[in-house]
């Protein structure tokens, strides 16, 4: 089943074409890694999927429903409903600094999805366990390390039971020794067949955990395929160079 379908996505910022006719799809249970040089439009593409950026043209179809159709969007309430099936994890975590870890986890379920606080708290304890942070339930965000913050951010988004999780360079602002704990959580989700789109510079992750790799360059999909093919036998010259320049 197609969870995400993108046709001829176009986006420009003040005359600069950032996305030129990007088309791809993501199937249920798939982990797709998006790689490429910085500035190639990876973040913009991901942000368009969840309506943090508005596409100028093209279709974005989420689980069969049009978020954008020929660059036209439904009313805010409708687009919010469609995007509620997805979640996103940011490079800078974006935890809510004024509330505890527990509240970071239960705010959306309680205030947006009208879940009973008691049941949300129970689930929060379980979800925190799966990311290995049971002991941090009453901590404040500032008391956490970067890796712990990112694991809480993942847990927070898991609390909304998304069908699709988008990651924008989730380990890029972490010290190298902290990336492992976050990647482990992501690999675990991937194994459980969570549908994931992961923009990353972690080639090890893309190679071992992704079902498919998309290489972006200059706002286009340059090459796309199975990790083995992309990493060992890339066809496009730019991909060859990129892979060659990275030590895995």
């Amino acid at each position: 089943m197609e969870m995400i379908r993108v046709n001829n996505l176009k986006k420009s910022f003040a005359g600069l074409n950032v996305l030129n006719d990007v088309s791809f799809s993501v199937n249920k249970g798939e982990t797709v890694a998006v790689i490429g040089h910085s500035g190639s439009g990876k973040s913009t593409m991901l942000r368009c999927l969840i309506n943090l950026e508005r596409a100028d043209g093209g279709d974005i179809i989420i689980e069969g429903e049009y978020l954008a159709r020929g660059g036209e969007y439904p009313p805010a309430k409708e687009s919010r409903r469609i995007c509620a099936k997805m979640g996103m994890v940011f490079q800078n975590f974006n935890l809510f600094p004024h509330i505890s870890v527990l509240n970071n986890l239960i705010y959306a379920p309680v205030y947006v999805m009208n879940e009973k606080p008691v049941s949300a708290k129970e689930r929060a304890a379980q979800v925190l366990k799966t990311v290995g942070l049971s002991d941090k339930i009453s901590a404040m965000p500032r008391e956490l390390s970067g890796g712990q913050k990112q694991r809480v951010a993942i847990a927070r988004q898991l609390m909304t039971n998304p069908d699709v999780l988008l990651f924008d360079e989730p380990t890029s602002s972490l010290d190298p020794q902290l990336t492992g704990e976050v990647l482990a959580v992501m690999k675990d989700l991937s194994k459980k067949r969570m549908t994931m789109v992961v923009v990353t510079h972690e080639m090890g992750f893309a190679r071992s955990a992704a079902d498919r790799v998309i290489f972006m360059g200059d706002g286009r999909i340059v090459e796309e395929g199975k990790p083995e093919d992309i990493f060992t036998n890339p066809k496009d010259e730019r991909v060859k160079q990129f892979i060659g320049s990275i030590i895995i």
């Binding site: 969840i50 309506n51 943090l52 974006n94 809510f96 205030y111 947006v112 988004q157 909304t160």
Partner: peptide
């Protein structure tokens, strides 16, 4: 930080819920 607005949005908060909470 604008990331706070964005995090609230992807968690499903409406503008007003995000502002208030």
């Amino acid at each position: 930080d604008t990331g706070q607005f964005e995090a609230a949005k992807v968690l499903g908060f409406s503008k007003w819920q995000a502002n208030i909470r």
